[in-house]
Design a protein around this nucleic acid. Structure first.
Lengths: 247, 247
DNA sequence: GCAAAAGTGTTGCTGTTACACCCATGG
DNA sequence: CCATGGGTGTAACAGCAACACTTTTGC
């Protein structure tokens, strides 16, 4: 008797967002401060209710735009300006995850370039980019815990990003439209928390067909010899993958 | 204003199951025939409502046990008898995916050995193991379409299984407690739909520490020279991964 | 010139592929 | 004896790690 839509327990469905970016060599996540109970004053992931006529991905994209001004990168029309990658992460539905009622949250993962994002509707006191180390605690150092089960959700999102840049070109979602090989390498280093050999990295990414396409321009914004500028190529899968140095 | 639990649209939350096994060299999925509208008479994935006090994983395990008699393999106490692997797959929430009302379905993926499973509560007419090719259609050949968006869910589950056996030891979830290298190889061949070199496969899996542990026994059930029997080792990640021959 | 970052060449190692070849059983 | 599947050895090759070395800018 799998379906009987007339009798079912009452559920609220929300989307929560793990929005990641790389700022000053550190992987950062978007956090909002809760203004009301429960967990009043604690940091939480941005999110909100799914509307009655709205798809899950649509709801996530709407929340992302409301919080950051970013819109979702459509592979069809490539990267106009503030474009972010958005994908579903996982769903969290423990009966006691919200003390008020039964809330099932469909978490999404967004990867964004480091823009001084005009956060529409959010004031500086209640929204911030925080290093994930600060939000999750690191090496046994406790952090001010996130509201609800958001620490778990954030950890899952970070783990997904870490593993996905191994075998896909997703790391370019952290970069502006045009970027250098060195900038892309610093993204990998920040997300993985390791140092990579610049020479081998350069060979690897430029030698993978479809990963990077040169724009012809150069820049010297990092100092040193001018570097070629690249745009993300059409390829989404990296084969063979980028190898993460062992932990 | 992310949370206001007093006012939210009414949602039903269900779990749907992609239960995969390997039978007669073919990747098969569990399908149930719908006895009532909508999609009456069509095949669908097993599933049902999440109860008010139940976690999502608990609901999925309950549905799995009800449909197949399988219980979930706990890594702590290894594989007693009818053990299956179970993990969350993705969540599907298009507002029009169920014509009756708003239903959000948290799909789960289960991998089971080929047991003549005693399907408690299901009669033979309404439950079957069907080759995924038959359920999804193949090479342009149309199949009787599955109910709701279950074709999409099944395709996502199959794709997850195909990619996950590359870099994890999950393929052993398709095997009985004790199995030979040849049987494990035939699992890979069925899931990927390719032929693998038996010699190189043998070297690869026996040379990966923690993947397989010999039980000491041998069997001749496949004919030919007796083969060693193995049990799944503790290792869950395969490094370097098993390489899938290019499509 | 010097520091800094970009980029190229080369060597040795790891792991895979594609085979030839031998082993142990059933019929 | 032969067919069948199990298992080992080996040579050619791809890709990566490590590191020496050159290039082009700013100061």
């Amino acid at each position: 008797m799998p379906y009987d839509p007339s009798a079912f327990p009452p559920f609220a469905v929300t989307v929560d967002l793990v929005v990641l970016t790389v700022r000053r060599h550190a992987l950062c996540a978007l956090a909002v401060r809760r203004g009301e109970p429960p967990f009043q004053g604690r940091w939480a992931l941005p999110g909100g209710f799914v509307r009655g006529d709205e798809d899950l991905a649509t709801a996530a994209a709407r929340e992302l735009a409301e919080e950051t001004g970013l819109h979702v990168n459509d592979p069809a029309c490539p990267a106009p300006a503030n474009a972010a990658h958005l994908e579903q992460l996982a769903t969290y539905g423990d009966p006691r995850r919200d003390p008020r009622m039964r809330v099932v949250s469909v978490a999404h993962l967004a990867l964004a370039p480091d823009l001084p994002a005009p956060r529409a509707g959010g004031d500086a006191h209640s929204v911030r980019w925080a290093p994930v180390e600060d939000l999750l605690g690191q090496d046994g150092v406790e952090a001010a815990p996130l509201a609800f089960d958001h620490a778990r959700i954030l950890a899952d999102g970070v783990e997904r990003a870490r593993s996905k840049i191994e075998y896909s070109s997703l790391a370019t979602a952290f970069c502006p439209q045009e970027f250098t090989v060195g900038e892309l390498r610093r993204v990998y280093e920040a997300v993985w928390g390791v140092a990579l050999d610049p020479r081998n990295f350069h060979r690897k990414v430029t030698g993978t067909p479809g990963f990077l396409v040169p724009t012809g321009g150069t820049t010297t914004r990092q100092g040193g010899r001018p570097a070629q500028l690249f745009r993300a190529g059409g390829a989404t899968l990296l084969n063979p993958p980028m190898l993460r140095p062992e932990a």
